[in-house]
Amino acid sequence: MNVRTLCLSILYEGESTGYEIRRQCVDGECSYFIEASFGSIYPALAKLEDDGLVTSRTEVQSGKPAKKIYSITDAGREAFAQELSMPLGEDMFRSPFLLFARFAHILPREVVEARANEFLQQRIDKLRHIEEATSKPICNASDTWVINYGRAMMELAERHMRSHMHELITLARADSDRDAAE
C-alpha cells in the first residue's frame, strides 16, 4: 500500500481536503494503516488528479483561504479496487518504545519505570479510543472487523506490559549501582 491508495481509500468514503486526509492519517481511522505526511499527500493527490482518478473543486471561505476539496471518480473507485486486489506487502511495525526497551539497561530505573508506565497508559488510552469508536454507528461489518483487530492488538500489548513491565524495570540500572561504580 502507498499514500496514493490511502488517499483513494479516504475519498472512497466521501469528499475531503488534503488537510482532512492528513488528519485521518494521524488521528483518525487511517492512522493504523500507513504513514502519510503533507509532503506525500499533496503530490499523491495531484498525480491522482492528473490520472483522472480524483477531481477537485475550490471552495471559497469567508475570512479564510480557499480550500481545495477532492472527490474520487468512477475510474478512481476502479483503480482503488484493483490496488486492493494486488498482493499485500509485509505489515510494518515501528515502535520508538521498543528501541527504548532494548536499551533500558543503560538508563536509570526511574526513567525506565516512568516511560513504561507512560507506554502502558497510552495502550489504555488507545483501547478507550477504540471503545468510543465502537459506540458510534459503524458503517459496515468490515469496519467492525478492523476495529476488533485493533482492539485485540491493544489488549495484548496492555496485558503484556502489565505482566512484564517489572522485568523491563529490573533491567534498568539503579542509580546507586552507578554511583558505587564511580
Rank of each mutant, 00 (worst) to 15 (best):
M1L: 08
M1G: 06
M1N: 05
V3Y: 02
T5W: 08
T5V: 13
L8I: 06
S9G: 07
L11Q: 04
E13G: 13
E13Q: 10
E13R: 09
E13N: 10
S16C: 14
S16G: 00
G18I: 02
G18T: 03
I21A: 02
R22Y: 06
R23K: 04
Q24N: 06
D27Y: 09
C30G: 09
S31G: 13
S31D: 11
Y32L: 11
Y32I: 13
F33V: 15
I34S: 09
E35P: 13
A36E: 02
S37Y: 08
S37D: 10
S40E: 05
S40R: 14
I41K: 03
Y42W: 12
P43E: 05
P43V: 07
A46T: 11
E49Y: 03
D50E: 12
L53M: 12
T58C: 05
T58Q: 06
K64P: 02
P65I: 12
A66E: 05
A66N: 10
K68C: 04
K68S: 03
I69M: 01
I69D: 06
I69V: 04
I72V: 02
I72C: 01
T73G: 03
D74S: 03
A75E: 10
A75T: 03
G76M: 02
R77M: 08
R77E: 10
A79N: 05
F80K: 07
F80Q: 09
A81P: 05
Q82N: 05
L84H: 01
S85C: 00
P87C: 03
L88W: 10
L88P: 13
E90C: 04
D91G: 12
M92F: 09
R94E: 14
R94N: 06
R94V: 12
S95E: 00
P96K: 00
L98I: 01
L99H: 00
F100K: 00
A101Y: 01
A101V: 00
A101W: 01
R102P: 00
R102I: 00
H105G: 10
H105R: 01
I106P: 06
L107C: 00
L107S: 03
P108L: 05
E113F: 10
E113N: 13
A114H: 14
N117F: 09
E118G: 13
E118M: 11
F119G: 09
L120F: 07
Q121R: 12
Q122T: 14
Q122D: 08
Q122K: 15
R123H: 13
R123Y: 11
I130H: 06
E131G: 11
E132C: 14
K136N: 10
P137G: 05
P137Y: 03
P137F: 07
C139F: 14
N140G: 11
A141Q: 11
A141Y: 07
T144K: 03
W145Q: 06
W145R: 05
N148L: 02
M153T: 01
M154Q: 09
E158I: 12
H160F: 15
R162T: 13
S163W: 15
H164S: 09
E167V: 12
E167Q: 09
L168H: 03
T170N: 11
T170K: 14
L171G: 12
L171I: 10
L171C: 10
D175R: 12
S176H: 15
S176Q: 15
S176L: 08
D177E: 13
D177F: 14
D177G: 14
D179V: 15
D179W: 15
A180E: 15
A181L: 13
